[in-house]
C-alpha cells in the first residue's frame, strides 16, 4: 500500500525530468524558455514551503520573500569568493541554514501572535531584512550584487525542487507533520492532546524559511543579479497568491498553481499594456469560482485514488 502511494509522485517526477531534459537536448527549450522553467522551479519551492507555514500549520506569514533574500545574499557572498560547484552547494546550504536560523529567532516571539497580528509582524520582519541588505556595505546597497557565478542547470534545479517536494511530503506524512497540521485545526485541542504547539509553529516556520533560503540561493545562482527590491512586499504577495490559488494545505495545488501562473504571465508578456489587468482579472475569476483554491486542501494523488476506488466499486457492483 505504501509503495502504491509513492508511485504517482515518482512517475510524475521522472517524466518531468526526462521531458525537460529531452526538450533541452533537442533545442526546443532555449535559454529564454529555460529561464521560465527555472522561475517555475523556484516558485514551486517558495510556494510549497510557504504552504507548510500558512496552509498546513495555519500561521499567516507575509514575510516569505525576506527569508528568500537571506538565502540569495548568503549564497551570493559565498559564490563570489568561491565560484565552484562545492562553493555553490555550500552557498545553498549556508543560505538555507541562515534563513532557518532567522526563522527561529523571529518565530519564537512572533508566533505567539495570531492571524492579522502575525501577518503584520512577519511583514515587518521582511521589511527589516530588506532594509538591512539595503544599507550593508558588503551587499552593495540598493544597486545589489551582479555578475555572480551561474551554476543552476536543469539537473540542479530538478534536484532541489524535487527534493523540497519529497521532503515536505514526507514531513507532512509523519507525526511531527501531523502535529503541525493539528495546530491549524484547533490549537487548544492540539495542546490538550499533548502537542507542544509553540514548538511545531516554530518548526514549520523555520522549515519554511529554510526552503525559502534554498529558493533564494537558486535564484542567485541562475539569474546572477540580486538587489533588495527583488525581495520586497510584492514578492511575498506573489508567493502567497500561488499558495492561495493552488489551495491552502495542498502541496500539489501549489505546484500546479506555480506552473499555471508562470505560463499565464509568460504568455501575457506578449501584451504588455493589458498584462497586469488581465492577470488580476484572472485571479479574481479563479477565486470567485474556486474560493478554496484549485485543489482545496486535498492532494492530486488523493483525488485520483478516490476516483479510482469509485470506478473500482462500480465495476464490482456491475460484476454482481
Amino acid at each position: 500500500m505504501k509503495k502504491r502511494k509513492n508511485l504517482p509522485l515518482i512517475i510524475t517526477l521522472a517524466v518531468t525530468y526526462v521531458a525537460v531534459w529531452a526538450l533541452q537536448a533537442t533545442g526546443i527549450v532555449n535559454d529564454y524558455s529555460f529561464a521560465v522553467i527555472v522561475t517555475i522551479g523556484i516558485n514551486i519551492i517558495l510556494a510549497t514551503s510557504l504552504n507548510l507555514v500558512t496552509g498546513f500549520t495555519g500561521q499567516f506569514s507575509l514575510g516569505h520573500a525576506g527569508f528568500m533574500s537571506i538565502g540569495a545574499y548568503t549564497c551570493a557572498l559565498i559564490t563570489q569568493k568561491n565560484p565552484t560547484i562545492p562553493g555553490f552547494l555550500l552557498g545553498v546550504a549556508a543560505g538555507a541554514t541562515a534563513a532557518a536560523l532567522v526563522g527561529v529567532l523571529v518565530g519564537l516571539p512572533t508566533l505567539r501572535l495570531r492571524g492579522d497580528y502575525l501577518a503584520i509582524a512577519t511583514l515587518g520582519m521582511a521589511e527589516i531584512i530588506r532594509v538591512v541588505f539595503l544599507n550593508l556595505e558588503i551587499t552593495n546597497g540598493a544597486a545589489g550584487l551582479s555578475f555572480l557565478p551561474q551554476f543552476v542547470n536543469w539537473n540542479w534545479l530538478f534536484l532541489f525542487t524535487a527534493g523540497t517536494l519529497v521532503l515536505l511530503r514526507n514531513f507532512l506524512n509523519s507525526s511531527p507533520g501531523r502535529a503541525c497540521i493539528s495546530v491549524r485545526e484547533d490549537e487548544i485541542a492540539a495542546e490538550s492532546m499533548g502537542v507542544n504547539t509553540t514548538k511545531y509553529k516554530v518548526t514549520a516556520f523555520s522549515m519554511g524559511a529554510f526552503f525559502a533560503g534554498v529558493a533564494g540561493a537558486l535564484y542567485t545562482s541562475y539569474f546572477f543579479f540580486i538587489k533588495p527590491d527583488l525581495f520586497n512586499f510584492n514578492k511575498s504577495i506573489d508567493i502567497l497568491v500561488i499558495v492561495v490559488l493552488g489551495g491552502m494545505g495542498s502541496l500539489s495545488g501549489s505546484v500546479i498553481a506555480a506552473v499555471l501562473l508562470q505560463l499565464i504571465s509568460t504568455w501575457l508578456a506578449a501584451f504588455p499594456e493589458v498584462r497586469m489587468v488581465l492577470y488580476a482579472a484572472m485571479l479574481v475569476a479563479i477565486m470567485l469560482f474556486r474560493p478554496q483554491g484549485l485543489l482545496g486542501s486535498t492532494e492530486v494523488s488523493a483525488v485520483i485514488s478516490r476516483r479510482l476506488s469509485k470506478i473500482g466499486r462500480r465495476a464490482k457492483e456491475e460484476e454482481v
Binding site: S174, R178, S182, A190, M193, M207, S297
Partner: peptide, 26 residues
C-alpha cells in the same frame, strides 16, 4: 480536528509517545 480524517485525529493524540523526530519525519 474537523478537516482531518478520523484516523489522523487519533494519531495526532499519540504524537507525544512517538520517538522519531523531525529528521525521522523528513
Amino acid at each position: 480536528f474537523r478537516s482531518l480524517t478520523v484516523l489522523d485525529n487519533v494519531r495526532i493524540a499519540m504524537h507525544q509517545n512517538v520517538r522519531y523526530g523531525i529528521a525521522g519525519g523528513l
